[in-house]
Nucleic acid binder design. Structure first.
Lengths: 227, 227
DNA sequence: CGCGCTATCCGACAAAAGTCGTCGTCATGC
DNA sequence: GCATGACGACGACTTTTGTCGGATAGCGCG
């Protein structure tokens, strides 16, 4: 597991984040100075639902998932976080407790940027506020599409959409942690049903399921199913 | 159907909207001056999904629903809008096309506030930007809870939550337009199933269904079912 | 007052989603 | 190389959700 990375790459990283576009070097340095470094083991809880965390997380390495967990123990994944993503905007900019739990899917490291520095930025830089708003808008669009999926599409249709969205070059790579359970949680169902959906698509020759990847064989058919 | 209301009540109304709290009289007047008035019949489409509408809507009278419609014709209601609500924040502040369709449930009238005036406000007033962010945060929380409901709760559980949330004094009033179809669309299911859920709860003596209202008879039991 | 419309209601059926038990297999660590 | 534990596969079953046909009742409108 890597230790705390040096500052400069961190600042370079910040620059590439949509949220911080257009900010000058000095401002970025100031943000970076206020940040603390934290690492997590696979499976570790990063933020617990209901917690009031006053930091913006900038994920430096590793993957996380953001989930809701029901009393019965079922999980609904809201989104995955990859290196370079930020999260906990709600806690920082709106002063809300986090509505979901974030869990490390593998060993991960993140910078925690202090709330005060960011709020000052909103006060001083209207264009930064605009970026924050744009970011939240993006997140809302995603949530709306998730709602539509869950409500109006059968499991197989959701799977088809996930494949179309997640695949590059007609292949969806599945990292170590991307088990059928995780897939099911993303689709809003249970592992067994997710597997059935996979076999259905495979049986119709639309996809080919291998160990660590899923191939799209017939994209038009998949689009048809996703519609 | 009322005609265009005079300005002053409009400005008073704006003052009471969370979004515009703390703005001085002159600024509100400026906003109001840029606004156009529009009326809609029951059933009329106010905003169509995918449309790029550059106005913020301030609903003055009447109720609207915000819905997604599937290819198969099924509807999922994202939220209801009552007088005093604003909508299309996404179109105005993030420059996105609206992700859902808004339809008038009854005759309605709204002020359309020009985008430019609002964007200027964001540039000039950091605290206004904060309010916008807070508003969107609220919306996101609602969407997250909707996702959780759809994914992790059975229809009866969702109905129980809806009743608990919507009832005042243990009574949920149902206006003319609040048919079982609308209830079903809100719950993310079809009218028949919504009705079954109602009868289930009624059969267990938890609620009493009357013509225009639903009474909560046993709140603890309802909370139990909603859990 | 009667007509027709729409919402509601109901029972039976079909399909989708979820559950359970079991067994094979693969990666990992010892 | 072997034991172990987690993941994946599969079939049978239950529950929930969705569909269909048709009966009934309230409401607005002429």
């Amino acid at each position: 597991m890597p230790g705390r990375p040096p500052f400069d790459p961190f600042i370079q990283g910040l620059r590439s984040v949509a949220l911080f576009q257009g900010l000058d070097e000095a401002t970025l340095r100031e943000l970076a100075r206020s940040a603390r470094w934290h690492e997590y083991d696979a499976g570790e809880v990063v933020i617990l639902e209901g917690e009031a965390q006053p930091c913006l997380y900038y994920l430096h390495y590793g993957w996380l998932k953001v989930v809701k967990i029901s009393a019965a123990g079922r999980e609904q994944t809201l989104r995955f976080l990859e290196p370079g993503d930020t999260f906990n905007e709600l806690g920082v900019f709106a002063g809300r407790t986090n509505p979901a739990t974030a869990i490390a899917l593998e060993a991960a490291g993140a910078w925690l940027i202090q709330r005060e520095a960011l709020l000052r930025l909103i006060q001083r830089r209207p264009d930064f506020a605009q970026h924050v708003i744009a970011k939240m808008a993006e997140r809302m669009l995603h949530l709306v599409s998730l709602v539509t999926d869950l409500s109006l599409r059968p499991v197989t249709g959701r799977l088809a959409r996930l494949l179309l969205e997640g695949a590059s070059e007609n292949v969806l790579y599945r990292p170590h942690w991307y088990t059928q359970s995780e897939l099911a949680a993303r689709l809003g169902t249970v592992p067994d049903v997710a597997q059935r959906a996979l076999r259905n698509l495979e049986g119709e020759g639309v996809i080919a399921v291998e160990r660590n990847q899923i191939h799209i064989l017939n994209r038009p058919a998949l689009i048809e199913i996703a519609a």
